[in-house]
Design a protein around this nucleic acid. Structure first.
Lengths: 104, 104
DNA sequence: GTACTATTTGATAACATTACCAATTAATCA
DNA sequence: TGATTAATTGGTAATGTTATCAAATAGTAC
């Protein structure tokens, strides 16, 4: 398997967790401190910290230190364009479920 | 965590494996039989079969049976638009690696 | 120096994913 | 019927991911 497919897969893997998707949404408009992100996603700080590190390592977020705070922002804004397509897939799946329900 | 983030994450998870990305590429232009896909991705048939099932379950591929063969095709063409953005991230990462290399 | 706050890291246990080989199903045809 | 081909499924061991709690780091202010 050519390496390029693995490199691409890593980006999708970085986006394949609900907390990480919520983090991406949180920082998509403007940078946010870790504290703000933790409040937004409603998860344990240490857990969020790991997800942030993973997103940074994948190249999706970048960070900046200022005093005690660390601010994260979306490094690759085009990632946001994924969501309308993903919502389309999700919608189709939910509609299929609804149609199956009708048949019961 | 709202359910919608988990549903979205499942789509990304389905795309987060090199073999599955190669499968998506393989069937993106026209439907292909499992045999053709197996040749294209150069992996074990049983392995490819499981990846195909996963992509179908996620709603990304659909399948059609004809005689002994099963044909898969891309159900959600907009997925292909992800790749130019993903390549951008990959390129940035590779450039960072190159720049680090220069400093050694 | 101590105290305080923000964030990350270590250790670990629970859980999920993957590849492999063998066995199975399903369709076709002689 | 049995043989052949295409594809999937069962079992399993190896590997990877995640959440949690405690501990550590790093910056600020006194």
């Amino acid at each position: 398997m050519e390496k390029i497919y693995s490199l691409r897969a890593e980006i999708f893997k970085a986006l394949s967790h609900p907390i990480r998707l919520k983090i991406v949404e949180c920082v998509s408009k403007e940078e946010k401190s870790v504290g703000e992100i933790v409040k937004y996603v409603e998860a344990e700080a240490s857990n969020v910290s790991r997800h942030l590190a993973l997103l940074r390592k994948a190249g999706i977020l970048s960070d900046r230190k200022e005093g005690l705070n660390i601010y994260y922002c979306l490094e690759i804004p085009c990632v946001m364009e994924f969501f309308s397509c993903v919502n389309k897939v999700v919608k189709t799946r939910l509609e299929l479920n609804r149609d199956m329900l009708k048949k019961i």
